Lab assay of single mutants.
Amino acid sequence: LSIEDFTQAFGMTPAAFSALPRWKQQNLKKEKGLF
Rank of each mutant, 00 (worst) to 15 (best):
Asp5Gly: 03
Gln8Thr: 13
Leu28Ile: 11
Leu20Phe: 01
Leu28Pro: 00
Phe6Lys: 00
Trp23Gln: 13
Ser18Phe: 12
Phe17Leu: 04
Trp23His: 15
Phe6Ser: 09
Ile3Pro: 11
Glu4Lys: 12
Ile3Val: 09
Lys24Trp: 03
Lys24Ser: 09
Phe10Asp: 11
Leu20Asn: 13
Gly11Trp: 00
Lys32Pro: 09
Phe17His: 08
Leu34Thr: 08
Ala15Leu: 09
Lys24Val: 08
Pro21Met: 01
Asn27Arg: 13
Thr7Arg: 07
Gln25Leu: 02
Leu1Met: 15
Leu20Ser: 05
Leu28Gly: 03
Phe6Glu: 01
Thr7Gln: 06
Pro14Tyr: 03
Asn27Lys: 14
Gln8Val: 11
Lys24Asp: 11
Leu1Tyr: 11
Phe35Thr: 13
Pro21Glu: 04
Phe10Thr: 07
Met12Lys: 01
Met12Gln: 00
Leu20Lys: 10
Leu28Met: 05
Gln8Lys: 15
Arg22Asn: 14
Gly33Trp: 03
Arg22Trp: 14
Ala9Asp: 10
Lys32Arg: 11
Asp5His: 06
Lys30Ile: 14
Thr7Ala: 09
Asp5Met: 00
Lys29Ile: 12
Met12Asn: 03
Pro14Ile: 06
Gln25Asn: 02
Thr7Pro: 05
Asp5Lys: 10
Ile3Phe: 14
Asp5Val: 01
Lys30Gly: 07
Arg22His: 14
Gly11Met: 00
Gly11Glu: 10
Phe6Pro: 10
Pro14Trp: 05
Pro14Val: 09
Asp5Arg: 04
Ala19Phe: 03
Thr7Trp: 04
Lys29Leu: 11
Gln26Phe: 13
Trp23Asn: 07
Phe35Leu: 13
Lys29Met: 14
Gln25Ser: 01
Gln26His: 15
Arg22Val: 15
Ala16Phe: 06
Phe17Met: 03
Phe6Ala: 04
Lys24Tyr: 03
Gln25Asp: 03
Phe17Trp: 10
Pro14Asn: 05
Ser2Asp: 13
Phe35Trp: 09
Ala9Trp: 07
Trp23Ala: 12
Pro14Asp: 09
Thr7Leu: 11
Gln26Cys: 09
Lys24Asn: 08
Gln25Lys: 01
Asp5Glu: 10
Ala15His: 04
Leu28Arg: 03
Asn27Cys: 09
Lys24Pro: 02
Trp23Leu: 06
Ile3Met: 13
Gln26Gly: 05
Thr13Trp: 00
Asn27Met: 14
Gln25Pro: 03
Gln8Tyr: 00
Trp23Glu: 15
Ala19Val: 07
Ser2Asn: 15
Asp5Tyr: 02
Arg22Asp: 15
Ala16Val: 05
Pro14Gln: 09
Asp5Trp: 00
Phe10Lys: 07
Trp23Cys: 08
Ile3Thr: 09
Ala16Arg: 10
Lys29Thr: 07
Ala19Asp: 13
Leu20Asp: 10
Ser18Val: 04
Lys29Ala: 07
Ile3Glu: 14
Ser18Lys: 10
Gln26Val: 12
Gly33Ser: 11
Ser18Met: 13
Ile3Arg: 09
Phe10Pro: 07
Phe35Asn: 14
Glu4Ser: 08
Gln8Cys: 08
Lys29His: 05
Ala15Tyr: 01
Glu4Met: 01
Ala16Asn: 13
Glu4Gly: 03
Phe10Trp: 05
Lys32Tyr: 13
Phe17Arg: 06
Glu31Asp: 10
Ser2His: 03
Ser2Ala: 05
Ser18Asp: 13
Gly11Phe: 01
Gln8Met: 09
Ala9Gly: 05
Lys30Pro: 04
Leu34Lys: 08
Glu31Arg: 05
Ser18Gln: 07
Lys30Ala: 11
Ala9His: 12
Gly33Pro: 07
Thr13Glu: 05
Phe17Gln: 10
Arg22Ala: 15
Thr13Met: 00
Thr13Lys: 00
Ala19His: 08
Phe35Cys: 10
Ser2Thr: 12
Ile3Cys: 11
Ile3Ala: 05
Ala16Glu: 15
Lys32Trp: 08
Lys30Met: 11
Phe6Met: 03
Arg22Gly: 14
Pro14Met: 06
Gly11Pro: 00
Ser2Tyr: 01
Gly33Met: 06
Ala16Thr: 11
Phe17Lys: 11
Lys24Arg: 08
Gln25Ala: 05
Gly33Phe: 02
Asn27Pro: 01
Lys29Gln: 12
Glu31Met: 06
Met12Thr: 01
Gln8Phe: 02
Leu20Ala: 02
Pro21Ala: 04
Asp5Thr: 05
Asn27Phe: 14
Thr7Ser: 07
Glu4Thr: 06
Met12Phe: 05
Pro21Leu: 02
Ile3Ser: 10
Lys29Asn: 02
Lys30Phe: 08
Gly11Ala: 01
Lys32Thr: 03
Ala15Gly: 09
Lys29Pro: 00
Arg22Pro: 15
Asp5Ile: 04
Gln25Thr: 00
Phe6Leu: 06
Glu4Arg: 02
Lys29Ser: 10
Ile3Lys: 13
Trp23Met: 09
Thr13Tyr: 00
Ile3Trp: 07
Leu1Thr: 07
Thr13Val: 01
Lys32Met: 10
Pro21Trp: 00
Ala9Arg: 14
Pro21Gly: 03
Gly11Val: 01
Pro14His: 03
Gln8His: 04
Ala15Cys: 06
Leu20Gly: 05
Ala9Ile: 12
Asp5Cys: 00
Lys32Gln: 11
Gln25Tyr: 01
Ala9Glu: 14
Lys30Trp: 03
Thr13Gln: 04
Glu31Leu: 02
Phe6Gly: 00
Ala15Phe: 01
Gly33Gln: 12
Arg22Thr: 15
Asn27Thr: 12
Gly33Arg: 06
Phe6Cys: 14
Gly11Asn: 06
Ser18Thr: 06
Phe10Gly: 09
Phe17Ile: 04
Gln8Leu: 07
Pro14Thr: 03
Gly11Lys: 02
Gln8Ser: 07
Ser18Leu: 07
Phe10Ser: 07
Thr13Ser: 10
Ala15Val: 08
Pro14Ser: 05
Ala15Thr: 12
Glu4His: 00
Asn27Leu: 14
Asp5Ala: 04
Ala16Leu: 03
Ser2Val: 00
Trp23Asp: 15
Lys32Ser: 11
Leu28Asp: 07
Glu4Asp: 08
Lys30Leu: 10
Lys24Phe: 01
Asp5Phe: 04
Gln8Pro: 04
Glu31Val: 06
Leu34Cys: 04
Ala9Gln: 15
Ala9Val: 12
Ser18His: 12
Leu20Arg: 03
Lys24Gly: 03
Thr7Phe: 11
Trp23Pro: 07
Ser18Pro: 02
Asn27Val: 13
Phe10Tyr: 14
Leu28Gln: 05
Pro14Gly: 03
Ala19Pro: 02
Leu28Thr: 02
Ala9Tyr: 11
Leu34Ser: 14
Leu28Glu: 06
Leu20Glu: 13
Gly33Thr: 05
Trp23Tyr: 14
Gln8Gly: 03
Arg22Gln: 15
Trp23Gly: 11
Glu31Trp: 04
Thr13His: 07
Ser2Lys: 06
Gly33Ala: 10
Arg22Cys: 13
Met12Leu: 04
Ala15Trp: 03
Ile3Leu: 09
Ala19Gly: 11
Gln8Glu: 12
Phe17Thr: 10
Met12Cys: 01
Lys30Val: 09
Lys24Gln: 14
Leu28Cys: 04
Leu1Arg: 06
Lys29Trp: 07
Asp5Ser: 04
Glu31Ile: 15
Ala19Arg: 11
Thr7Lys: 11
Gln25Gly: 01
Ala16Gln: 14
Leu34Ile: 15
Phe17Gly: 07
Asn27His: 13
